[in-house]
Each structure stands twice: as structure tokens, then as C-alpha cells.
Amino acid sequence: MQIEKNAMAGTLESSDAMVTVEPAETGIELEISSSVMNQYGRQIKATVLETLERLEVTSGKVTVVDKGALDCTLKARVECAVFRSCEKSAAGIPWGGVIK
């Protein structure tokens, strides 16, 4: 998928994360801030990058403000933001396909 326009998903509540995606020319530019950066920063980064790779997103600026989200929440927020950026988040989601 390609990030087509700015989109956001998630909240700043505890156990959640707010993910923003913006189009970019080349490559993934990832910015993470987290309330648990020291303990989990590396894992958050890995989960976000894995999710983007699964969605075949190769370029874009991705900002994650993490409030202690579990991996499954991070995945859900990244996926939703990317699908929103393509206006494809409302129906026909490939559950169990690229979303897994």
C-alpha cells in the first residue's frame, strides 16, 4: 500500500498509541516517543516496521506517540492509519490476510 494522504489513528489514553502517517518521496521515516521508551523502545520500533512491511508500505513519515500500548494495539493503530490514508478503512478489510 502507499500512504496517499495524512492520516491518524489511536488516542493518547493509557495503553494506547497515536499513530500519524504522512506521504513521503522515498523510504520510511519513523519517529517514536513513548512513556516506556527505555524499556520497550526497540520492540515498539520493530513492531511498527514489521507492520509497515506486511502492508508493503515502502515510503512515508510515520509518527508514533506511545502510551504503553501492547503490540496488538500498536499493530491495530498503524494498520488503521495506513488504511485511512488510502480511504480504505471502512469496508472490505483483508482480515487474516495482510491484517494478522
Binding site: 489513528a9 496488538c72 494495539t73 491495530a76 493503530r77 494498520e79 488503521c80 471502512a90 478489510i93 494478522k100
Partner: peptide, 16 residues
């Protein structure tokens, strides 16, 4: 937020 809730639900159901 109906779309976001479904992504969140899917991963909760399959992970937790």
C-alpha cells in the same frame, strides 16, 4: 472511530 475499533477488535480477538 468505527473503522479503528474493528482493527483493535481483530487484534484483541486473535492475540488476547
Amino acid at each position: 472511530q468505527k473503522d479503528a475499533a474493528r482493527f483493535s477488535l481483530y487484534h484483541a480477538l486473535t492475540t488476547i
